[in-house]
Amino acid sequence: MQHNVFILIGFIEIALSIFMQWQNYVSNNIKTFSIQSWILGIFLMYFGVLNNNISIIILSILTILTRAIFIPRYLINTINKQIFRARENKHKVSVSLSILISVLLAIFSYILYTLVFFEFGKSLISIPITLMLQGAFLIMSRSNAYAQLIGYLVMENSMFLLSFLFNGLPFIVEAGIILDILGIVMIGGILMKIRDEDIQKEEELYG
């Protein structure tokens, strides 16, 4: 049963991150990320209740509070102050190509599983790996700072799914990770307010 729920959750997350590739509007991306985190948090809570594990329940509440509520709200607030960044006009990679690439990443990670991870058991490992690669691809294929930050957060979400397949990290480490992500998002938000995107050819950053 848990197996099936995991597959369901994993593929919904993958489909949502493909949806992110499709979007031009950053606020839609942020909302999609929020939905992803909600699903993840609810799944975690379900798992915790099922196994009567208090620390996982606390973790799920923390996840929902930070990733699903606070971070999206914070990002949307920053984006409302500079509305001209809300839409990314020029994609480095065209949208249909990036959608196809992110699907091919899913297949690639399945192949990766058959080559590298098969001795660690479950074929489900390829789901979090897919999400992680898709997050990394989102970072690489966009020049908008918000989209890049969302890509990083997707990678972190996939980390949660992955830790569910393995033993899971100790509670104190997970709590520390959440704190760190909050820090990254806050600092990233401060930087993004002023950062200009068309600075690729600056001489001082060359070589």
Partner: peptide
């Protein structure tokens, strides 16, 4: 491309669920 990606994902799900979870 979205439609295509859904069919490919369906194929992937089939492989993941059937190849010994």
């Amino acid at each position: 491309a979205i439609a295509f990606s859904f069919t490919l994902l369906a194929m992937l799900v089939f492989y993941i669920t059937t190849s010994g979870g």
